[in-house]
């Protein structure tokens, strides 16, 4: 039971990061019906950007008070989100808008995004020396347990709590934004039917641009959380990117709540299934099969529900 809960918390932590990234995929898919393959690099640049900012304020080996940690965390999330938003905006201007103007075939967008992804990750590598194990300065004890789940020995560590709580806050914020504001309405309008939305006075280019910015901000913030929890590098985006894309599809691509559920589910499943029966002895399947489990679950879900758990359409479900 203790192990089960520990793995569950671990899964929720990872899953909430997947969910944040998946939202970027799903938002863009909602308005453009295109997979934004370069979103993983938006995530990566969020990690580097926030590292540069946070590194100016804190140093390795410091022990900050809880309110200082909160402040630094907020700063990190904000800077990650800003850098991610900026990169996503540029990405849309360079790799999407010119192709849209030319009426390019759908796959051309995919390939231009892939080109952009190579470009960004290697440019970051050039600027940041291609180190594979960068770490944020450690300014508080991340792994200290905050509380123990009653009825078992399972604990939630500080960083896990921070990741889950901030992810949930951001997701709620996004949900409100999309369902309750004018910008959200225009995003949903474009997702539902772009030509009609244009006739209703919505500036499509602007809406698409802003959708990229929102998705990029979430991805960049996720980059900060990921970098703080684990290590970061210029090629860090690839695997979480693929997983988050899978999570977006799992929940029903183009569907915001679907992406949240898909991300959390994927994180939990890939932590719980390989370790079954959770007795601390490695599990029957084994951790080396984690990725296989994730993809098999994805395929199974898609075979029985071809449009994901919650179905498609940003417009309808949000």
């Amino acid at each position: 039971m203790t192990d089960f809960l520990n793995y569950l918390v671990l899964g929720l932590t990872r899953g909430s990061m997947y969910a944040l990234i998946a939202l970027g995929y799903t938002l863009v898919y909602g308005v453009l019906q295109l997979i934004n393959f370069a979103h993983s690099e938006v995530f990566m640049s969020g990690a580097f950007g926030s590292y540069l900012i946070v590194g100016m304020f804190v140093h390795d080996g410091q022990h900050l008070a809880w309110w200082q940690v909160t402040l630094v965390m907020f700063l990190g999330l904000l800077s990650g989100a800003l850098v991610g938003a900026a990169v996503a905006w540029g990405l849309e201007r360079v790799a999407y808008r010119p192709l849209r103007r030319r009426g390019a075939p759908k796959l051309a967008f995919l390939i231009s995004a892939i080109g952009m992804s190579f470009f960004l990750s290697q440019l970051a590598g050039k600027l940041f020396n291609r180190l594979s194990q960068n770490q944020f300065p450690s300014y508080f004890d991340q792994n200290k347990a905050v509380f123990t789940i009653p009825g078992s020995g399972a604990t939630v560590s500080r960083i896990q709590l921070i990741v889950i709580v901030s992810a949930v806050i951001m997701m709620v914020f996004l949900d409100r934004l999309v369902s309750g504001t004018k910008l959200g309405r225009s995003i949903r309008g474009v997702a539902e039917d772009a030509p009609t939305a244009a006739l209703m006075g919505i500036d499509i280019d602007k809406t698409i641009s802003r959708t990229f910015i929102i998705g990029g901000a979430l991805g960049g913030a996720a980059g900060f959380l990921f970098g703080t929890t684990f290590v970061f590098s210029n090629i860090m985006g690839f695997i979480p990117g693929v997983k988050a894309f899978a999570a977006a599809v799992l929940g029903g691509i183009g569907n915001i709540r679907g992406a949240m559920i898909g991300g959390l589910l994927l994180g939990v499943v890939e932590n719980l299934v390989p370790t079954f029966p959770w007795n601390g002895s490695g599990g029957w399947i084994g951790l080396q099969w984690t990725d296989v489990v994730a993809f098999v679950v994805l395929v199974l879900v898609l075979v029985f529900r071809p449009t994901g758990i919650l179905g498609e359409r940003l417009g309808r479900a949000a």
């Binding site: 790799a95 390019a104 051309a108 231009s112 080109g115 952009m116 190579f118 960004l120 290697q122 590598g125």
Partner: peptide, 21 residues
């Protein structure tokens, strides 16, 4: 040598922008 993939990414990107077919 390490920068090659960056240039290839740029080439792919430019190709898709200017000659999407």
């Amino acid at each position: 040598a390490e920068d090659r993939q960056m240039w290839i990414g740029a080439v792919i990107l430019l190709m898709m922008i200017f000659r999407p077919a």
